[in-house]
């Protein structure tokens, strides 16, 4: 089984900020085969399209997802109560291939922070995590990241918590010292990280978002522009070829 459509039981629900929720979904079959950087495609009652949400962590038979209310679908999801059944397609996408013996930096921006947790747990303690947030009220998962043993650097855009600035500021200081970059967050952030990575000749992998229908590679809906070696543009699909892409091939 590569992936399946299954019911999960919502066994834990926590509100991390007024708009961000942490859900614990119990399903041993799906949890067992889920890798860092993969995502779930969540059925929303009353909606035609499912909502893609990354896996934040896997603990035993529990898949953890952390999501922000962005519109109607995520609002309906946030209203599910503990004990209710949530139908997901999972695990989807390629995920991050995390090398064990390299010095890795994991960078998350805003709601791109959660998927980095499962990644950081897989890496050695000589790895670094840089998480960036809008301001202090948006900071999430600090305690969880501290437990991974990785060095944790946090930034806020306005300096109300952690380092004052963007994730690229601390990245500039450590980039010469690391082997590979993994990042997830808003597109402008990913683009800036990829420019920096290229300038320092470091491999960089980014997790992209696109509007999805099937979530499994059948409908060709979730296209992203990818540069071919001859410089021409082709399309790949976030749900099947991604969501993780080598930043060099992305047509920013």
């Amino acid at each position: 089984m590569k992936f399946d459509v299954q019911d999960c039981t919502l066994v834990g629900k926590y509100r991390l900020t007024p708009t961000i929720y942490d859900f614990r979904l119990k399903n041993s079959q799906l949890a067992e085969i889920t890798k860092p950087g993969q995502f779930t495609h969540v059925l929303i009652p009353g909606k035609t399209l499912r909502r893609p949400v990354s896996v934040c962590d896997v603990e035993g038979d529990i898949i953890r997802i952390v999501f922000e209310i962005r519109g109607d679908g995520t609002r309906i999801l946030s209203e599910c109560e503990v004990g209710s059944v949530i139908n997901i397609i999972a695990p989807l996408g390629n995920g991050f291939n995390i090398p064990k013996d390299k010095k890795t930096v994991f960078i998350g921006g805003g709601i791109g922070v959660p998927p980095m947790l499962y990644c950081a747990e897989q890496a050695g303690s000589n790895s670094v995590v840089i998480n960036g947030f809008r301001d202090k009220s948006a900071v999430i998962l600090s305690e969880d990241f501290k437990k991974t043993g990785c060095r944790l650097i946090e930034t806020t855009d306005n300096g109300t918590y952690g380092i004052n600035g963007f994730v690229t500021d601390p990245l500039k200081e450590i980039i010469d010292d690391i082997d590979v970059i993994f990042a997830c967050g808003p597109t402008p952030m990913l683009k800036n990280i990829s420019i920096l990575a290229k300038a320092h000749n470091k491999p960089c992998f980014v997790s992209l978002e696109q509007r999805m229908a099937c979530g499994i590679g059948a409908c060709l809906g979730c296209a992203v522009g990818i540069k071919k070696s001859d410089g021409s543009i082709t399309y790949k699909h976030v749900c099947k070829d991604g969501p993780v892409f080598n930043s060099e091939e992305v047509d920013w």
Binding site: K47, T48, L49, G73, Q210, R211, M212, A213, C219, L220, G221, C222, A223, V224, G225, I233, T234, Y235
Partner: peptide, 23 residues
């Protein structure tokens, strides 16, 4: 055929729009 540039999908009330463009 490469198909149309993204985004290609939008949700509607009880439905969706697609413009995959025959990729």
């Amino acid at each position: 055929r490469l198909g149309n540039p993204p985004p290609r999908i939008a949700e509607t009330s009880m439905g969706m729009l697609n413009a995959v463009g025959l990729q």
